[in-house]
Simulated assay, not measured.
Amino acid sequence: MTDEDDSVQRFVLGDVEIVRVVEWQAPFAPARALVPDCEPEVWRRHRDLLAPDHWDPDGDRAVAALQTWVIRSGGLTVLVDTGVGAGRERPGNPEFHQRQGDLPGRLARAGVRPEDVDVVVNTHLHADHVGWNTRDADGAWVPAFPRARYLIPAADDAHFGPAGGYGGGARVDDRLVYEDSVAPVHRAGQAVLWEDEHRVDACLTLEAAPGHTPGSAVLRLASRGERAVFVGDLLHSPVQILRPECSSCFCLDPQRAAASRRRVLERAADDGELVIPAHFAGAGVARVRREGAGLMLAPGLRRSPGTARTSASPS
């Protein structure tokens, strides 16, 4: 992995280039609030793996990142999730309310213009994964990527859309998120709803992994024997690799999320897939291995902001 600046890193798997574009990373939330069922002893016992990139022991706070992944595969430019956006009304979340992010500027530094993007993958429809789906054009929300197909899980679109009562009111901002970041994509004719499995190209396949939301998805990459899986919010912290049964406080169906998490992580361990979550700080990626009946975070992928790391791939 190589640094262009603190917010852009690139690496290659097979014939596919991956670019990590980071908007923000810092201590985010109390560790036990983020992953409520994970006892403090797990964090302390694995301090060497978790601190400082994923856990601030002094404040007992989980460290997280807000980031978008760019994939260049077979002539396509694909974005995986689009962050919080800018100028959004999010009264239920002070961290996101009226945030003035600049993902387009960071993408430009990575060599990606809005018109270059062919596909946008929303792993699910939470506010911090769809915010830059759209931009403000003279007071109206329009797709930020004018040529792109937006791949949206049908189950999430049904749950968070008006027919599903905007998530049944479970989150105060769900209606606002859908109306400013998803509905405009539908109106522009750029939304593609999918379910169960969807092939993006010869190297990329979307697969349902429900629980965090009804339509939560993972994106699998396979190219010339190298593999990765973009897991969205199946993982918020590496402690969930150590304890896959522990879901985050944001999971709408914690038990179903845990089942999806274990299935995806066990396959990653068995098939040698690089695990790429939406919110990991540090290197932003993880390797997983089996240890007895459980799973373990493989060492050697720690990276603090500003510390260059160079290799052909982040293994």
Rank of each mutant, 00 (worst) to 15 (best):
W69H: 09
W69T: 05
V70A: 04
V70K: 08
V70H: 06
V70C: 01
V70G: 02
I71S: 07
R72V: 05
S73Y: 13
S73V: 11
G74I: 00
G75N: 11
G75L: 07
G75D: 09
L76D: 14
L76E: 15
L76R: 15
T77F: 03
T77A: 01
V78D: 13
V78E: 13
V78P: 04
V78A: 10
L79G: 06
V80I: 09
D81P: 00
D81F: 11
G83P: 07
G83R: 06
G83L: 13
G83Q: 07
G83T: 09
V84W: 02
V84S: 01
V84M: 08
V84F: 01
V84A: 13
G85Y: 12
G85M: 15
A86N: 11
A86E: 05
A86I: 02
A86V: 04
G87N: 10
G87R: 12
G87H: 13
G87Q: 15
E89S: 07
R90D: 14
R90K: 11
R90A: 13
R90Q: 10
P91N: 08
N93K: 03
N93A: 10
P94R: 05
P94A: 01
E95W: 06
E95R: 00
H97W: 10
H97I: 03
Q98F: 07
Q98P: 03
Q98I: 00
R99F: 15
Q100P: 00
Q100E: 15
G101V: 03
G101K: 00
G101A: 05
G101Y: 03
D102V: 00
D102M: 06
L103G: 13
P104L: 09
P104S: 05
G105F: 13
G105E: 15
G105I: 03
G105W: 10
G105D: 13
G105Y: 13
R106S: 01
L107M: 10
L107R: 02
L107G: 06
A108F: 01
A108P: 04
A108G: 07
R109S: 08
R109K: 12
R109E: 01
R109A: 11
A110V: 10
G111V: 05
V112P: 01
R113L: 09
R113V: 02
P114T: 01
P114W: 00
E115G: 14
E115S: 09
D116I: 06
D116R: 06
V117H: 05
